[in-house]
């Protein structure tokens, strides 16, 4: 027998050309066991209101495009299911702490600048030629950064971070996790280029370990751990710079 349940989805709408502030619009959407929140939004766009604006791409929690606030909680809308909210209703809003461009789409420019600032690539002082083969790592060396490399830049952690919301000069969870991911990589030699950012007020010191970033992360990156290990590194750098020329952490 076909599933004929319906659920109310309240969506935050904002048209920058006509609205001075966002408002809520409610839709009634049919769903079954397999209907994700994203599919609910697609139903609204296809059948109820074609002007609804939101981002998505892969539908399988890989691309990181479809993050939304679902009942106040940052979620990948492709990884959340309508059945889990029934018989209640859903309130879908754009990701918190980012400026709203239109409806559920936010402006990610600030994050993209921060991502670039942490230099999220392997930096070598001397590149070895291809003929000498690849850079080898032990399983232990891989495990020291692997979880932090799972980040898909979905920005849920930024929406979970009140410190970023209060002061967006803070570099924030995902960018600092990726910074730590490269600093912790045995092949990387760029720590001294990244430490000035880590050591600054805008770096790890904007964090007060609220810890919600790690709860909402869909990839178990645990950004709070990356940021707070960054605090330990920065503290060592602060005191050991008087003892060793390179601050003790760039060994």
């Amino acid at each position: 027998m076909p599933d004929r349940r319906e659920i109310d989805i309240e969506v935050m709408r904002y048209n920058p050309e006509t609205d001075s502030e966002p408002y809520i619009q409610s839709f009634r959407v049919p769903f079954d066991e397999d209907t994700s929140v994203l599919m609910g939004l697609q139903y609204i766009k296809d059948h109820l209101d074609g002007s609804l604006t939101f981002r998505w791409s892969c539908r399988m929690a890989v691309c990181g495009s479809c993050g939304k606030m679902v009942n106040g909680v940052p979620k990948l809308s492709c990884k959340a299911f309508l059945r889990d909210y029934y018989p209640g209703k859903l309130r879908i809003e754009p990701l918190e702490h980012f400026p709203i461009v239109r409806d559920l789409a936010v402006d990610q420019t600030d994050f993209l600048e921060k991502l670039e600032a942490v230099k999220p690539w392997i930096i070598r002082k001397d590149e070895k030629p291809l003929s000498e083969g690849t850079y080898l790592q032990t399983p232990e060396e891989v495990s020291s950064y692997l979880q932090f490399s799972s980040c898909i830049n979905c920005l849920l952690c930024y929406s979970a971070c009140p410190q970023y919301g209060l002061d967006n000069s803070f570099t924030g969870p995902a960018a600092l996790s990726l910074l730590h991911r490269y600093n912790a990589d045995s092949r990387d030699e760029g720590k001294s280029e990244r430490m000035p950012l880590v050591n600054s007020e805008e770096g790890v010191w904007g964090c007060t370990l609220v810890g919600y970033c790690s709860e909402v992360c869909p990839k178990q990156v645990d950004p709070a751990a990356a940021v707070n290990r960054g605090k330990v590194n920065s503290t060592m750098d602060y005191f050991l710079r008087f003892l060793t020329p390179r601050g003790g952490v760039d060994s």
Partner: peptide, 15 residues
């Protein structure tokens, strides 16, 4: 990008 100023937070964070 502007040069980053080192925070003295490590002193207070250690305590």
């Amino acid at each position: 990008m502007k040069p980053m100023k080192r925070s003295n937070e490590p002193i207070f964070w250690s305590l």
